[in-house]
Design a protein around this nucleic acid. Structure first.
Ligand code: MN
Ligand code: MN
Ligand code: ZN
Ligand code: ZN
Lengths: 126, 126
DNA sequence: ATATTTTCGCAACTTTGTTGCATTAACAGT
DNA sequence: ACTGTTAATGCAACAAAGTTGCGAAAATAT
C-alpha cells in the first residue's frame, strides 16, 4: 500500500527529495535522519513513496539501493526507464534523461532494464 | 593477487564453471559447495579467478553478486563488457553476446557499464 | 625431506535490509 | 473538540550477504 497518512516522517522525506533533487542511497538517508526517525521507518516510507510513483529506486554499484525523485509517474504508471550514472571516485549518482536502445534478444521478453554507467563525473575528472 | 597455487578448491570451482557454462550467484555456489569448502574460501577463490580474467562478476537483481566464465580475457585484459539477462520468474541469468550502444553524456567520462535486462526467459514465457 | 608461504577453515564481525509487536499519532465521523 | 479506528512508528531481534584476523593446513620451492 502507498501513502495514506501524511505523517511527520513522510513530510520530512518528501521535502528532502524535492529540495535536494539528486539521487540518494538509502544508507545515506538513514544516516542523515538518524536523529529524527528509525531506519525501519525510512525503509517503509521509501517503499510507500515508490509505490505511489513519487520516487523510484535502482541499484548503484556494489548493489546498494538508491532512490531519486520521479517525474511524471503515478501509482498506476511507473515509466522511469532511464539509465543512471555513478562516479567511481565520489560515488555520486545521476539520473540520465536519455534513451538507451536495447537490441532485441531472440526468445527473450524484456520487461525492464537496469542500466548503470560507471565513470568520472564532471567534478572528479582530471 | 590472482591464482598462485592450484588447490583442491580452485580445481573444483574451475571445473564447475567449465562444465556448467551458465552464470551462477555466489550464494548458490556457496550452498552447492557447502560440504566441500567454507564460504570464505569460495569468496576468495572467486576473487582470484576474476583477477586473472578467468571469470567475471556482475550484480543481478536485488544487487546479488553473480559470476560467469570469461572468454578471451586475461589478468591484463578484462574485456567482458556485455549486458546480462535475468529472468524474473526463475532467476536464471545469461551473458548476452551483444553490444549495447551507450550515447555519450556531456561532461561524463564513462569507463564501464553495468547493464541488466529483466524479463522472461524462453522456458518461462507463456 | 624440509622450509617457505600461499591458502584454508573457523569464528567473529559488519552492513544492509526485514519482521513482529506493542505503542503512538493521523484523521474521519460525530 | 472529543472519540474510535487503524495506519504508521519505534524498538529489538533477526536474516542474509559479505569481510576480516589468525592459527593450521597444504602447495610448492629448495
Ligand atoms: Mn533515476
Ligand atoms: Mn557475463
Ligand atoms: Zn565524482
Ligand atoms: Zn525463467
Amino acid at each position: 500500500m502507498g501513502i495514506v497518512r501524511k505523517t511527520k516522517g513522510v513530510t520530512t522525506i518528501l521535502k528532502f527529495f524535492n529540495q535536494k533533487g539528486e539521487a540518494t542511497s538509502v544508507v545515506h538517508l538513514i544516516d542523515l535522519l538518524k536523529d529524527k526517525m528509525n531506519k525501519t521507518t525510512v525503509y517503509r516510507i521509501l517503499d510507500r513513496l515508490e509505490h505511489d510513483g513519487i520516487i523510484h529506486s535502482f541499484n548503484g554499484k556494489d548493489g546498494l539501493k538508491w532512490y531519486a525523485k520521479s517525474i511524471g509517474c503515478s501509482a498506476d504508471q511507473h515509466l522511469d526507464e532511464h539509465p543512471h550514472f555513478q562516479c567511481t571516485k565520489c560515488d555520486k549518482v545521476e539520473c540520465l534523461p536519455v534513451e538507451v536502445k536495447i537490441p532485441t534478444i531472440k526468445n527473450h521478453k524484456i520487461d525492464s532494464t537496469n542500466i548503470l554507467l560507471l565513470g568520472k563525473c564532471e567534478a572528479c575528472s582530471d
